[in-house]
Design a binder for these strands. Structure first.
Length: 463
RNA sequence: GGCGCGAUAGCAAAGCGGUUAUGCCACGGAUUGCAAAUCCGUUGAGGCCGGUUCGACUCCGGCUCGCGCCUCCA
């Protein structure tokens, strides 16, 4: 089976084959750690985590790198406001990021380079760009001269003239040409800075990714991912830096460019600048992380996804159905099990990560599980567990899932109190005191606890 | 102005030139002391106008509406 991926460069689905069949390289733009990430930031993480899982199933050695941007003017500003060192602030939000992404069942990438650990690589790349005639120094800045790169614009499909005509930014006086962008900028004494051939300063935004890719993954990588809003200018500039820094300037920098669509609120892009965002951290107070992940996977990754409370609540209901089929099943994934529907599911994922269709296979399996019993049921349950693991879902105990309580409802009934009432109800039922039994059912229902009687006894779930 | 994306049932969201997507919700039935869960079933679709075709939600053209990038942004 062949993996097909939509490549932004060609705007087509292409069969994927790594440059080196024994080593797949993937780089995804990570967060700038100056704040809690919002749910829109989580989309690419979940999308590329799903791709990482898929690649791991098909290739022996997948190197997945996702950076942490821990030097940036937004960080500087936030640290100044808080009156704390940037490193402290950056570390705090990097930790929070790891926690939040872990809650969404994202695997840790193979490598997680920090910008501040790679300043030397950036300086080296900038020096190479100057040497090759693609960059120049001006007033303590180093700028990339866009006109020297004949392929500039090939990713975002725009040409220089249009860009200059539509430019809405004031052109800095030290720029030779309006489209030139900063590789290095000077730092005043109160700002973080590093010694460089051009004086004490700090890197521009785009250089870290191309420098770290070169250093940690190589001259040419297979896959580079990120949100669509990074296509221009960030990724376009990365291509310019990552190719022009080499002698011939014609090596391919990235072979497959992948971009996920936006997460919208009321039809409009969620973004920090618009202020219409919800942080993952806040959402995790109200919903299990798995619900958030499921919600993000309900739409194809290149399509816009409108985010809402309804989306989460139907994701929750859908997961209830899946976990309902997994009651009394082992949590472990048996990697040896095989089933035609696993192949079907894999086929959908191999087709440019069609997660909505992949989810439909999980539901088909759940339906079959609910119709069978005994060994056949147990087998299908292990198939469903494995299917879930393909996309990072269904990795917890079913009873734990149904008993999950939001952190925001700390005043609710404890598990013990619930069990006690259930016992009281069982006694009442034995005594044929159905009035009392129903009163207890109602009392619990009012607190969001639903009881289910079955041959095996009574179990409960939180709504 | 340049470049790009989208429009599917109450909601969300896929595939597909002719045959049930799927999930949530709603309704009916089975089951249940009552419920819940589950199963069975039902309703309901493809922005508008043309074209191609034996046949189009699916291909082509136009229109309308919505959105995005061109500035920090996933």
């Amino acid at each position: 089976m062949t993996l097909y991926l939509h490549n932004t460069l060609t705007q087509q689905k292409e069969p994927f084959a790594p440059l080196d069949p024994n080593r797949v390289t993937m780089y995804v733009c990570g967060p700038t750690v100056y704040n809690f990430v919002h749910i829109g930031n989580a989309r690419p993480v979940v999308v590329f985590d799903t791709l990482f899982r898929l690649l791991n199933r098909h290739f022996p050695n997948v190197i997945y790198a996702r950076n942490i941007t821990d030097i940036d003017d937004k960080i500087n500003n936030a640290a100044k406001e808080n009156g704390e060192p940037i490193r402290v602030l950056a570390e705090r939000y990097a930790d929070a990021y790891h926690q939040d992404m872990g809650q969404l069942n994202n695997l840790q990438p193979t490598l997680e380079p920090y910008a501040t650990d790679n300043i030397d690589a950036m300086i080296e790349q900038i020096q190479a760009l100057i040497k090759n005639g693609h960059a120049y120094e001006a007033e303590g800045h180093v700028l990339f001269q866009v006109s020297t790169d004949k392929q500039y614009g090939k990713l975002s499909k725009r040409n220089m003239d249009d860009m200059i005509a539509g430019a809405r930014v004031e052109v800095a006086p030290y720029k030779k040409e309006p489209a030139d962008f900063v590789l290095w900028k000077p730092s005043s004494d109160d700002l973080p800075g590093w010694d460089s051939p051009w004086g004490r300063g700090r890197p521009g935004w785009h250089i870290e990714c191309s420098a770290m890719i070169n250093k940690h993954l190589g001259k040419t990588i297979d896959i580079h991912g990120g949100g669509m809003d990074l296509i221009f200018p960030h990724h376009e500039n990365e291509i310019a830096q990552g190719t022009c820094c080499h002698e011939h300037g014609n090596e391919q920098f990235v072979r497959y460019w992948l971009h996920n669509g936006y997460l919208n609120i009321d039809g409009k892009k969620m973004s920090k600048s618009l202020g219409n965002f919800r942080t993952v951290r806040d959402l995790l107070q109200e919903w299990p992380g798995e619900v958030i992940r499921y919600a993000l996977l309900t739409a194809h990754y290149r399509k816009p996804l409108d985010f809402s409370g309804d989306l989460l609540s139907s994701a929750k209901s859908a997961l209830d159905r899946l976990y309902g089929a997994l009651r009394e099943s082992a949590v472990t994934v048996d990697s040896g099990v095989q089933h035609p529907q696993l192949d079907e599911l894999e086929g959908y994922l191999l087709d440019d990560l069609n997660t909505p269709q992949a989810l439909s296979v999980l539901h088909a399996l759940a339906g079959e599980i609910n119709k069978t019993t005994g060994a056949e049921k147990a087998k299908l349950q292990s198939i469903l567990r494995k299917a879930g693991s393909f996309i990072g879902l269904l990795n917890q105990d079913a009873e734990a899932w149904f008993k999950w309580a939001p952190a925001s409802s700390s005043g609710g009934l404890s598990d013990d109190a619930i069990e006690q009432l259930i016992q009281e109800r069982i006694d009442a039922k034995k005594a044929k005191n159905f009035v009392r039994a129903d009163a207890i059912r109602k009392e619990l229902k009012d607190q969001g606890i639903v009881l289910e009687d079955s041959k095996e006894g009574t179990r409960w779930t939180r709504e």
